[in-house]
């Protein structure tokens, strides 16, 4: 009975501590001017992604891929009907841009999430287990790390034919975990030596319990930080792939829009078509990057140098 009560209390105080830590973190974050800019930008993109569902409901001509303005059969500049103008078939550029935000978030977050999960698990395991498991996992990480991801996706596209958006997401994730796992491993190594882990071990906790109950909560903020950097990488790779003509031909992404304007010969003539997608890709990258940097400052500053290297 008393032990249970103690446990509850412990749990409650831990929860409290965690909340306090978040609050402190936010206080530090708020001071970072660039970090605030990053958040604002990001919110705009989130709004864009959410708004992307609206135009096709207004009129079928706003369908980003197959909808065309019945009266416009050439590329036209911005107007009331088409806020950013139309492409040369009469498709609305603004709704394409909104749809692009949705694709960017889907690709970025999904693949970053998978790679973070992988990286965290592998990093923790390697750090905690040590020995040959560590060597094996880290050497694998070394190998994957030197491979240029974009080119890897390209070669897979050559072998397996046209890739759809989810296989692209998965491939990016599979080639983007090593950086995270290295940092998580380093963190785990230091955690391993802390007294509370020893205490847990003495109390008879299993490896799994120690890993997930005691180590994971302590490395998660770091993982989360790395997720922001992975998101930018994934968005950029998908965009580059689409730009080169190997994207999922069924999705309207910003990279795809750039490919269209480049290949159909409108890039000198239609700045309203060339500029927005490029600015969006760049800004969403910037916003995640700023977010990451600001979070970096919030977390242990000692990690910072480590962080920039991967």
């Amino acid at each position: 009975m008393p032990s249970r009560k103690k446990k509850i209390l412990e749990e409650r105080s831990r929860r409290w501590r965690r909340m306090e830590r978040w609050a402190q973190g936010w206080a530090i974050y708020k001071k970072n001017f660039l970090g605030r800019i990053g958040l604002v930008l990001l919110s705009i993109f989130v709004l864009m992604a959410l708004a992307s569902f609206i135009p096709p409901l207004v009129d079928p001509m706003y369908k980003p891929m197959s909808g065309v303005d019945p009266e416009i059969t050439a590329s036209t500049g911005p107007s009331f009907r088409h806020w950013l103008g139309t492409d040369f078939m009469g498709r609305d550029l603004f709704s394409q841009l909104l749809a692009g935000a949705r694709v960017a978030f889907t690709v970025g977050i999904a693949s970053a999430f998978v790679s973070i999960v992988l990286g965290t698990l592998i990093g923790m395991t390697a750090g905690y287990m040590g020995g040959w498991t560590d060597t094996l996992l880290m050497r694998t990480a070394d190998i994957i790390m030197v491979m240029p991801t974009l080119l890897v996706v390209l070669i897979l596209a050559a072998l397996f034919g046209q890739l759809n958006i989810w296989s692209i997401v998965l491939i990016i994730a599979l080639f983007r975990w090593p950086g995270v796992s290295r940092v998580i491993r380093a963190q785990t190594l230091t955690l391993k030596e802390r007294p509370f882990i020893d205490a847990a071990r003495v109390a008879g906790a299993s490896h799994l319990r120690i890993l997930f109950r005691h180590i994971m909560p302590n490395v998660l903020p770091l993982s989360f930080l790395y997720m922001t950097f992975r998101v930018t990488a994934a968005i950029n790779i998908e965009a580059a792939l689409a730009f080169l003509g190997f994207g999922d031909p069924g999705t309207v992404s910003w990279g795809m829009m750039l490919q269209w304007v480049w290949k159909t010969g409108y890039m000198f003539k239609a700045p309203y078509w060339l500029l927005p997608p490029g600015i969006c890709i760049s800004l969403i990258t910037l916003s995640f990057y700023l977010l990451g940097r600001a979070m970096d400052e919030v977390l242990d500053p000692r990690l910072r140098k480590e962080g920039e290297r991967y």
Binding site: G245, K263, G265
Partner: peptide, 17 residues
């Protein structure tokens, strides 16, 4: 490819759609 004949490449995309 779109550089050689963007019209056919675009027709391909639209037919695909």
């Amino acid at each position: 490819p779109a550089d050689y004949d963007p019209l056919r490449a675009m027709s391909g995309t639209i037919i695909q759609e």
